[in-house]
Design a protein around this nucleic acid. Structure first.
Lengths: 197, 197
DNA sequence: CTTTTTATGTACTATCTCGCATATTAATAT
DNA sequence: ATATTAATATGCGAGATAGTACATAAAAAG
């Protein structure tokens, strides 16, 4: 891949989006101004527009990066581990590491998108679609676990999947509310024990 | 109670706060301007300041009204019903009625407060405190249910309470994401069946 | 009627906000 | 060198925004 023709970029696309995402994550969509973004991304406004589009586009692109990160975590834990029980616990633990990495961070998607759906159907669709994907993947994994005999036969895998995601939603909100990492990880472990018996 | 001394109020305190709450509910804290509030409350800005304080104060007061409403629902269902199973189902059903009463409304607290905690410790505390109260009340009810023999002996009432609240959090977010009322009420019923088996 | 009290209405300010129009800079291609 | 391409930098402008100063209105108290 040859070098581009014009003046070279001073920003790194991924780093810039990650920096933007961090701001949206803490201040929320409507609480973030373009000046906030410009400062964090070390770009001026016109460059941001040229590179990523308007504020909503920057938000959705940085959100997509975050979702991809969580997806990767899912694959490494729930999807990869032959033991559902251990895999799900590991997934929650990894999620919690992110949710509590900075003070009261919570989940970027669950804690900022809901407040931003009004007048932004694309954001609502990002939220709805991601939730649906997680439902589907968890259900698939639980169905497999029933076949493997790791979960009691006759278990309603679809509802169990939604229950598991409920725990994720709750961890997201509770972390944002300031609940301690210790308290949250104790709950998530106990929750898996109850759900997967 | 004698009539006040000065010029009589033109607004009704409760109605004004409810109108303000409805705006915050759909547009979020940072997405709502004082002009939006003034219009919805049928008051001009100086009157709002005089009556309720600044924007944050209006938000927190309308939020407190919402929380009180949910509390009342809890008392009428979970707390009042001698059958935990039926009581919890009724609570979720009532919550869902509110969450889906207008298009993709979700829960005022869970869908708007998390995005507004940054720089507003009082709001974070409102969120954390409410979650804690619900935990405590659910745990109390489940402990009673274990004593009554409605729930298996040896059940971890504290974790079960948090799991039940997780369902509430998830319903809140999913409703906001646009999931249908039918789908949500099916899930909540099934979830109670699994949790309280 | 006059004073006091409380609420409303007008108008203002200083700041922030988004988005863009226009210039400038730095690289490659010819 | 000159043209072309792509990025950065400056700075504007129309409108929104939070909060307030000041004047007006409507009631009770004296």
């Amino acid at each position: 891949m040859k070098r581009q023709r014009g003046r070279p970029k001073q920003y790194d696309e991924e780093k810039a989006l990650a920096a933007a995402g961090a701001v949206f994550w803490s201040k929320g969509y409507n609480g973030t101004s373009l000046d906030d973004l410009a400062k964090a991304m070390a770009m001026n406004r016109p460059s941001i527009y040229r590179a990523f589009g308007d504020k909503q586009a920057v938000y959705r692109k940085s959100l997509a990066m975050f979702i991809a990160l969580m997806e990767a975590g899912f694959k490494d834990t729930v999807a990869a581990n032959p033991d559902v029980h251990a895999g799900l616990k590991a997934f929650f633990r990894d999620a919690l590491k992110i949710y509590t990495s900075s003070h009261a961070r919570g989940c970027m998607l669950m804690c900022t998108a809901p407040a931003a759906v009004d007048g932004q159907p694309a954001v609502q669709e990002d939220l709805r679609g991601t939730i649906e994907q997680i439902d589907l993947q968890l259900e698939r994994r639980f169905t497999q676990a029933v076949e493997d005999g790791q979960v009691a036969a006759g278990t309603d895998a679809a509802t169990l999947a939604r229950l598991a995601q409920s725990v994720l939603h709750s961890l997201a909100i509770r972390a944002r509310a300031g609940e301690s990492a210790a308290s949250l990880s104790e709950f998530s472990d106990n929750a898996v024990d109850i759900l997967l018996g």
